[in-house]
Design a protein around this nucleic acid. Structure first.
Lengths: 104, 104
DNA sequence: CCGACACATAAGCACAGACTTATTTCATTA
DNA sequence: TAATGAAATAAGTCTGTGCTTATGTGTCGG
């Protein structure tokens, strides 16, 4: 769950694709392979990296393992990004508006 | 300036250190080496990666080159992160606190 | 000009990591 | 309980990349 693990995990385009797919809805490892020309072990390894980084979490369901986005990882990026808030002044108001919208 | 370049750039701990140092204030390449046990070419290469990613920009001043944070790169991460806003509701209060701190 | 200095580029090396095939683990079901 | 099927682990290969030393480029002061 360190920033190092998170950024390393997201540095790989295949893993970002997997993550984006999971952001739409949860999937098991086999479903995630669809469309990607990648072996089953490769997918398993990618998911392991994403999980160690706290970007994804798993939930065993029988002999399937369902994966979904873990908000903790995203929050960690948000916190990292917040440290450099001095450089996005123009964006702060947007974010505030967003949070207000999210609030009810 | 792609997400791929940005995440790859930030995946390296040395480059994150450099970036954080630049976030405090602008520095030239020599100043940035202080404290880091790293050769001059290594620093030059790191800065090149950060610059290509749009995270840092340079400004020649005589025979020195001053580097500073480029808001574009940060904004690009912010936009990437915003796509997954559906997954931060649990963290809203934390973020709000951050924004409040930022606001003074 | 010429020496020194700041930085960039070149070339090569060594390690990290993304992939493969083969095998193992574990749960389901016939 | 044997067979099947999903997913994880093992082991090995190959590419990418971060580092080094050596050299090139450009700027300033004497």
């Amino acid at each position: 769950m360190t920033h190092d693990q998170i950024f390393k995990a997201l540095a790989d385009p295949t893993r970002r694709t997997i993550f984006e797919r999971l952001a739409t809805s949860g999937h098991n490892a086999s479903e995630l392979r669809e469309g990607l020309s990648i072996s089953q072990p490769a997918m398993s390894q990618h998911l392991s990296v994403l999980r160690s980084a706290g970007l994804v979490r798993e939930q065993r369901q029988g002999r399937f393992v369902n994966y979904e986005v873990d908000p903790d990882g995203l929050a960690s990026i948000g916190e990292w990004l917040a440290k450099y808030r001095a450089y996005w002044p123009a964006r702060i108001d947007d974010l505030k508006t967003l949070l207000k919208d999210m609030d009810q």
